[in-house]
Design a protein around this nucleic acid. Structure first.
Lengths: 162, 162
DNA sequence: GCCCTTTCGAAATGATTTTTCGTTATACAC
DNA sequence: GTGTATAACGAAAAATCATTTCGAAAGGGC
């Protein structure tokens, strides 16, 4: 995991459609070693998958809602079932167990407020939830799948423009 | 935008490495029309980009922090600068303007609590912020880039297993 | 029925990925 | 220094895949 691997990851996080030869040129390598590095990072699980990202507007899921859930105290059984139920909804794109005041946080994407209400009804029909609070996002100012690569490798940094 | 396009999008959101011929077989089409449909959806901007998704653990960004920001009332200028500053941090992977109590919500990824503190200091060094509240995620139960496709196309649904 | 438009599929072409092979660099023991 | 092992490199061949070309089939209006 050196400077070149980081450079490769930075590019692939941006755009994974480049030909290996072009990518190689960008990082200053020939195609074979570049290809092998990519291969290795896929085997090692650093690169998890390659996917297509869609336009939320174009697929009619412009609206993001953050749903905070407080559960008081519940049985292990309830928690297990709760997770299973929530995960199944395709509208739930993120789901976290939190520290602090709120127990769970969901990011839900829907076309509009009406669709959110319908989602909400379907959710509480499947499982009883004590305390739910929904907040709508007015605007998505930034959304990226690119993770910062500055924290990889404690040594070997040299942290230049690459 | 019909059933077949939806089927194609569903697969590409999962895995964009499939050969067009294999994808075509899966949706019940031959390669040329399938390729053309993909091409069109890229032109139309339905498919925005293709990217590699990395393992947060493997790049040392396991920890997610949600940062709630209240700004009271500020000038337009301040708001503009605030957005510009926040967007520049690679640790900020999501950034929303919210309705309700909280004005802005950030999702920040870092290696650990210490790194979050360092990030926080760098942030407030760049711009003064009134009221900040940080909550750590204990566990990421679900995270997907796959948008639900059930809301596309009001007509033409037929909504089967495809 | 006929024309127009659209979508389809088979096959040829061109580009890219992946393998093969030989070379070069680096490190370590002696 | 010399020898040897290990790991990374690069050029070129082979295999696979994307893209184009062409013609045929399917729907829609008149």
């Amino acid at each position: 995991m050196d400077r070149l691997d980081r450079k490769i990851l930075r590019i692939l996080q941006e755009d994974s459609t480049l030909a290996v030869a072009d990518l190689a040129k960008k990082v200053g390598l020939s195609t074979t070693p570049c290809w092998r590095r990519i291969q290795k990072m896929e085997e090692d699980g650093v690169i998890r998958r390659r996917v297509a990202l869609l336009d939320p507007g174009k697929v009619n899921t412009k609206v993001t809602v953050f749903v905070s859930i407080r559960t008081a105290s519940h049985s292990i059984e309830w928690l297990k079932r709760f997770s299973e139920v929530v995960v199944e909804f395709p509208e739930v794109v993120e789901f976290y167990r939190m520290s602090g005041d709120v127990d769970y946080l969901l990011r839900v994407v829907v076309p509009d407020i009406g669709a959110y209400d319908a989602f909400y009804k379907r959710l509480i029909a499947k499982i009883e939830i004590r305390d739910v609070s929904s907040v709508f996002a007015m605007e998505q100012i930034k959304y990226t799948t690119q993770l910062p690569l500055d924290y990889m490798m404690i040594d070997n940094q040299k942290s230049g423009e690459d």
